[in-house]
């Protein structure tokens, strides 16, 4: 049995190994992903982002518990930053997710952001596909949301959740622009702390200003205390409601199409660059072209367009 078939049978070791192969750009991965793809698209993908230490992992842990109570199997992908200097990473999200460590219906995987632009969204997207293929009903992706690709990952889920905490001063201002826009549910975690009211008011104002239409989904604001399991049931209820809303309004189709579109673009970018560069190199024109650009005889855009034309006419 090949590794893709083992993944389809829910074999944990195969799931784990295939995710590693994805992360390492293993040459056999594309073929294996092709085998899995027709069997995917069944899982409900939830994205969760927010400032470092806001309690994302603690929330994921408790949400996982709630979904297990409801009979759903759960996959978790927890993304932490890779050091740009050493390529290493400290992946500590599991510390807060120990309640489910030996539950065979829960699969938790930590991933470093690693280097390349776009590489992260491809790797997490493949990891989601793998967990989906292995039969997980719900897949939760946690990222700190520091970079654009991390925000994109959460945004491409069915239900993006943004976590805030009270007591940081200008909470709303402190959150990176672009993150608030993607929230379909806002969670004010650590609601046991001072200053909850202020975050709530700020969030409400922001949502008000956004001017949602009559039958649009207006992002609900929920309060949780993850460490005490407070507000978790309501959070999962709201996530399920959002999924129902998506399914009943065609929003789900739109999200799926958007995600597929983004995936196609990612891959065209990746493969297209290879094809064009290899073509130049094989023709022995690569370094001479670089020389020309260095001497300012041709500008990079013209050079790129010419190179693409050459491939097309081949």
């Amino acid at each position: 049995m090949d590794i893709a078939e083992r993944v389809l049978n829910g074999d944990r070791r195969a799931v784990a190994r295939l995710i590693t192969m994805v992360e390492n750009n293993h040459p056999e991965v594309r073929e294996l992903m092709r085998e899995l793809y027709p069997h995917t698209g069944k899982a409900h993908v939830i994205g969760i982002t927010g400032a470092p230490g806001s309690g994302k992992s603690s929330l994921v842990n408790k949400m996982t518990g709630e979904y297990r109570k409801r009979g759903k199997s759960v996959g978790v992908i927890a993304v932490d930053p890779t050091s740009p200097f050493t390529g290493g990473a400290l992946l500590g999200d599991r510390i807060r997710m120990q309640s489910h460590a030996t539950d065979k219906e829960v699969f938790i995987r930590s991933m470093g952001t690693r280097g390349s632009l776009g590489g992260l969204s491809r790797a997490t997207s493949d990891a989601i596909t793998i967990l989906d293929a292995s039969g997980k009903d719900v897949i939760i992706v946690e990222t700190v949301g520091a970079g654009q690709s991390e925000v994109d990952i959460v945004n491409s889920s069915h239900t993006p959740i943004v976590v805030l905490v009270p007591g940081m001063g200008d909470e709303i201002q402190a959150i990176k622009a672009g993150i608030l826009e993607i929230g379909t549910i806002f969670v004010v975690n650590k609601a046991d702390r001072e200053g909850v009211e202020r975050v709530l008011v700020d969030l409400e104002m922001m949502i008000d200003l956004a001017g949602y239409g009559e039958d649009e989904w207006v992002p609900p604001i929920l309060q949780t205390v993850a460490v005490r399991n407070e507000g978790i049931k309501e959070l999962v209820d709201t996530i399920e409601e959002h999924m129902k809303y998506l399914a009943s309004t065609g929003g789900l189709d739109k999200r799926i199409r958007d995600r597929v579109r983004a995936g196609l673009k990612d891959w065209i970018r990746e493969e297209g660059v290879h094809i064009v560069l290899n073509n130049l190199k094989e023709a022995g024109e690569y370094e001479p072209l670089i020389d020309k650009m260095v001497k300012r005889e041709v500008d990079p855009h013209t050079a790129a367009v010419d190179a693409i034309k050459r491939v097309r006419n081949r």
């Binding site: 890779t82 050091s83 050493t86 390529g87 290493g88 990473a89 400290l90 992946l91 500590g92 599991r94 510390i95 930590s110 470093g112």
Partner: peptide
């Protein structure tokens, strides 16, 4: 991590 590894704690 400094040595370039991914460490899951």
């Amino acid at each position: 991590r400094e040595a370039g590894m991914e460490v899951i704690y």
